[in-house]
Amino acid sequence: MDRSQFINNYMELKFASRSENESFARVAVAAFISQLDPTMEQLTEVKTVVSEAVTNAIIHGYENKEGMVSIQCRLHEGTMELIIEDQGNGIEDLEEARQPLFTSKPELERSGMGFTIMENFMDEIEVVSTPGAGTRVRVVKYLKNPSVARH
């Protein structure tokens, strides 16, 4: 019997907005959710989404200036909830920012695919941003379906 659906756990992580912490952030989250025994595909999708959100915070939120990025991760009944937050510039036009291929920094060869990837790899996404105050990305992914796992 798969007991991972009964795991309830929580962690918080806070780190400097430096690009070398992007790999640290995705590996830390991947290690934390591994207690739910996710598939390799789910693990890669979660790592990619963490990477996208943290990179956005570093490049756009803080524009490579020093700040702090925080990650909260909650596991509850087979579901993972991730909140990635910064206290940076915020996003003026969220709708525009979430358009596929839109980027405010084409000179940096940004692909403009960050939000599109997050939307596709997660089951829920919610972005709250206040210009001048910061951005909060909340995503949810169903890693274990309880009704399936019970069998």
Binding site: T48, E52, S111
Partner: peptide
């Protein structure tokens, strides 16, 4: 071992 949208930018460029 891993790639995200930053890689897409490099490839497209």
């Amino acid at each position: 071992a891993f790639m995200d949208s930053s890689g897409l930018g490099v490839i497209l460029g």
